[in-house]
Design a binder for these strands. Structure first.
Lengths: 181, 181
DNA sequence: TTAAACTTTCAGAAATTACTGAAACTTCAG
DNA sequence: CTGAAGTTTCAGTAATTTCTGAAAGTTTAA
């Protein structure tokens, strides 16, 4: 498996960005490779293309599976596992988004909820709870919003996205309708 | 500077989440502490409250400043620098969001743009470019959308957020209006 | 069963990232 | 100026994360 320089630059870039997207370098590279390569790849293909150990590929695939970003296929008369990206680019973006929400927001939300149950014990805690409340409300709104977006069909989401500057106008419209009634 | 257990748990949680939010443990703790503490804190306060070295505080503050999340204040007759969170919770969330977009999306967008300028050299590259195109378009839409949200006033944004399930309906409404005309 | 062909696991090594603390730097009151 | 009170820098060390490769596990064809 030899990569042309353009493809290689994409794969390496995915590696560099990997940690920013929530996984590590090799997992990023693996994911980039799977996306950019039309045919499903075996663990050995990946290990050779990226010059990483077989064991590392196994762990990386596990990680990508935990993000629901790859799927396994089998070919007849062949015992090997073939990996390919799971779903369309759009679906995968949605999954990364959702998964990150779970990892980055949900734990905080739950901590805040717990802390807000207790009575503040002193002046400092009163202030602290106010702030925690603000953060809690913000995160809850964002979470709710994110869920909303996810429950929309890709086409509708796209409409909403493309609406662009129009969103603002539509809200005004809605406001008017509400006020009238 | 001693923290009550509830406040401490919040600060430590911010530390643990730090790396997921884009910075490291101590930077996360520092940020949590500044948010939860009503009065601005000096570098020494922070270093004592979190048991970290003075030098580390300095580096952490620099990092938080690069995210535009802290501001420096001075008190009369006092040469020390006092740090406090910059802006409301909402504004700070917006900044983290924007800053992450810059770090997580913009570089990829620029790489993809470059790669898409060249002609594909073979069949594999044709496929690769298709995929890169899809990713490019997705990221561009998201970026555009994010910019849109950011240009809206916090109140309007909140209205939009609170709209929740209504968004879908509003879009339908808009569609109808367009179709009628 | 057996053994070939594959995958997974995990202890230890390597690489990366974060932290300390001492020295250098800056600022300002006297 | 001088030095006291602060901040920043950065080389070296500590902590954490990632990767390797060998051993253990799994699956299936014969």
């Amino acid at each position: 498996m030899i990569l042309t320089s353009k493809i290689e630059s994409f794969v390496m870039h995915c590696g560099e960005m990997g940690s920013r997207w929530g996984f590590n370098r090799t997992v990023g590279q693996m994911y980039g490779l799977l996306i950019i390569h039309q045919e499903p790849l075996t663990a050995v293909d990946i290990s050779e293309a990226l010059n990483i150990s077989r064991g590392n590929v196994s762990m990386g695939i596990k990680e990508l599976q935990s993000w629901r970003l790859v799927q396994v296929q089998h070919k007849p008369k062949d015992r090997k596992e073939y990996y390919s990206p799971a779903g369309t680019i759009w679906e995968m973006a949605t999954r990364v988004f959702e998964e990150r929400r779970k990892r980055e927001i949900d734990p905080t939300l739950s901590l805040l909820r717990d802390n807000l149950l207790d009575e503040p014990a002193n002046q400092k805690e009163v202030y602290a709870q106010e702030k925690m409340h603000e953060i809690h409300d913000l995160l809850e709104t964002v979470t709710h919003w994110a869920g909303e977006l996810q429950s929309m069909s890709p086409e509708k989401l796209n409409t909403l996205m493309k609406l662009g500057a129009g969103v603002s106008k539509v809200i005004n419209l809605k406001d008017k309708l509400i006020n009238k009634s």
